[in-house]
Design a protein around this nucleic acid. Structure first.
Lengths: 133, 133
DNA sequence: CAGAATCCGACCCGATACTG
DNA sequence: CAGTATCGGGTCGGATTCTG
C-alpha cells in the first residue's frame, strides 16, 4: 500500500460528465443531440431501414441521419445490418446497451412532452413580465 | 357545440417530439443541449449562485451559462432569485418541474457514464474494422 | 459578483448532385 | 434504396470588454 504521499485522487467516478475532458460528454451529446435522441427513440419501437427511419424522424436530412447513425453505431448503441442484395437493404436496430439508454431517454422525452402545457404557461408568463424587455 | 366544420385534428398526441413543428422539441433541446443538461444536473444537488454553477459546469463560458439559464428559466425549469444587495447575489434552483426533468436526465447521464467502458470498447472495435477507411 | 454587449471564427446542418 | 461529396449560409459559442 504504499502510503503514497497524497493520493491525487483521480476520483472514483472515472467518467464524470461534469469534467470537461471526459469522453462521456461526447457520447452524451451523441445521445441527446438534435437527431441522436430521436433516432434512438424511433428505433426503440423496432428495427428500421434507413428511409423508414428518415420518414419517422420528421425533418432530418439524409446527411444528418447518416452521420448520426454512424456515431451511434460507433458508440455501440446501434447495430447496422447490411444485406448485400440489390437494391441494397440495411436495417438498423438497438443493441442491448442502446436499449438501456433509449429507455432512459424516452422517460425523459415523455416527461418533457407531458409537461409542455406547464412549460408553455411558464413561457407566457416569462415573456409577459420581462418580455417587453 | 358548434359543430365546427372539421376539427383540424391537431392530433391527440398534441406534443409529439417526432413531429417537426412541435414545441416540445425546442424544450427538449434546452434540456439536452450541450450545457442545459449539465446545468440541470448541477442544480439537482441544490441551489447555486451564478459563479458556483460556472465552476461546477466545467468549461462553460459566462455567455453560454447565462443564455442557458435564461432558456431554462423561461421554460419554467429553473427559478432565479435575485437579491438586490451589493455585491449582487443571485441564486438559481430547480422548480418542481425542473426537478422531475432533472431526475430523468440524471438517470440517463448515469446510465451513459456507467456504460463508458462498453462504449470505449465498441469504439475501438469500430475504428479498427473500418477505421482504416 | 452577476451579467450584457460585441466581435469573430468554427462547425453544424440543409440542399443538391452524384454513386453503386 | 442507401448512402457519399461538396458547397454555402447560419448559428453556436469562446474571448474580450464593459456595467452596476
Amino acid at each position: 500500500m504504499s502510503g503514497s504521499i497524497q493520493e491525487p485522487v483521480v476520483e472514483d467516478c472515472a467518467f464524470d460528465v461534469f469534467a470537461r475532458a471526459c469522453p462521456s460528454r461526447g457520447t452524451l451529446e451523441h445521445v441527446t443531440g438534435r437527431w441522436g435522441g430521436l433516432a434512438l427513440g424511433a428505433l426503440y419501437e423496432g428495427s428500421l431501414r434507413f428511409n423508414e427511419l428518415r420518414r419517422r424522424v420528421d425533418g432530418v436530412s439524409e446527411k444528418m441521419l447518416s452521420q448520426t447513425l454512424q456515431a451511434l453505431e460507433r458508440d455501440g448503441l446501434v447495430h447496422r445490418e447490411a444485406q448485400p442484395v440489390n437494391p441494397p437493404r440495411v436495417d438498423y436496430e438497438l443493441t442491448d446497451l442502446g436499449r438501456k439508454v433509449a429507455e432512459r431517454l424516452l422517460a425523459l422525452i415523455h416527461c418533457v412532452e407531458g409537461a409542455m402545457d406547464e412549460v408553455l404557461t411558464a413561457r407566457a408568463r416569462y415573456d409577459e413580465t420581462r418580455g417587453a424587455r
